[in-house]
């Protein structure tokens, strides 16, 4: 089998659905729908996150996201961004399910506007209710292995710890805890939030994550479409590097050329 085929066969599965792209991209903050669609295309993402918001009833003929990114070709993952209580998040996702007709959703319940850190008490409560109602929630959470385990026990179909605060672009702040979450989880783990540049995405994948979710890093790049390509390459490189198994670190040098036969 060639390396190309290996990459193709390397799928991941969430809630019974298999995907080959390990990059999930957001659809917020773009200058235009056209740019957004081009970035999604360049990223190779098979899943995009979307928000649920009021229709503008004053101007109902405004173009819609679905005109540019076809939900039949790309899986829409409705999120609960902007929800600060479990009840708001549950209400939003009930509507999302009606708008989209599917159960796979992204749950995030935020604790405060300043850090956008998740409120884990409300997140856990919302997860329990949603699972009872037949949802398959992929859950945004703190990078805490115990909280991750609790979410998994509550029925989360994927654990999505933050690498750094949403929209900060600071990169993976705590590799130790991300790694612990990956080791302990039986469901997919995706770093969600904090990625700023391609190397951050590669780091997440090298830690063994099943995927990476990002929005701002692509949308706020000077050239979002080019950055989308970079992220695609980084996620693939990080995944391959993880599978390949990196060399051990040494404290001192070790020559690459043989010492024998020196003139």
């Amino acid at each position: 089998m060639t390396a190309q085929q290996d990459i193709k066969a390397d799928t991941w599965t969430v809630a019974g659905r298999a995907f080959s792209s390990r990059l999930i991209v957001g659809t917020g903050k773009y200058k235009s729908f056209e740019e957004n669609a081009a970035a999604v295309e360049a990223s190779g993402a098979e899943i995009v996150t979307v928000a649920v918001r009021r229709v503008n009833i004053a101007d109902p003929k405004q173009p819609m996201l679905t005109d540019f990114i076809d939900p039949k070709k790309v899986t829409y993952l409705p999120n609960t961004a902007g929800c600060f209580t479990a009840d708001d998040a549950i209400r939003t996702l009930r509507l999302a399910r009606e708008a989209g007709g599917w159960n796979l959703v992204k749950l995030e319940v935020l604790g405060e506007a300043k850090t956008l850190y998740p409120d884990m008490r409300e997140t856990l409560r919302a997860t329990e209710v949603l699972v009872k109602e037949g949802f398959e929630p992929m859950v945004y959470c703190v990078d805490d292995p115990i909280a991750a385990k609790q979410l998994e026990e509550a029925g989360a179909v994927a654990i999505m710890p933050l690498g750094a605060p949403i929209g900060s672009g600071l990169g993976i702040q705590n590799r130790v805890t991300i790694r612990l979450i990956v080791e302990g989880a039986k469901v997919p783990v995706l770093v969600d939030a904090g990625v700023g540049t391609a190397s951050d995405a590669a780091v997440a994948m090298e830690l063994g994550c099943d995927g990476v979710l990002m929005n701002t890093a692509i949308a706020e790049a000077k050239d979002p479409v080019l950055m989308a390509r970079a992220m695609k390459a980084a996620v693939e490189a990080g995944r391959l590097s993880y599978l390949a198994g990196r060399m051990q670190k040494r404290r001192y040098a070790d020559p690459s050329s043989p010492l024998a036969g020196l003139i």
Partner: peptide, 10 residues
């Protein structure tokens, strides 16, 4: 009533 749809989001 609330009438909603999908919009761009992260």
């Amino acid at each position: 009533y609330e009438i909603v749809h999908f919009v761009g989001g992260g």
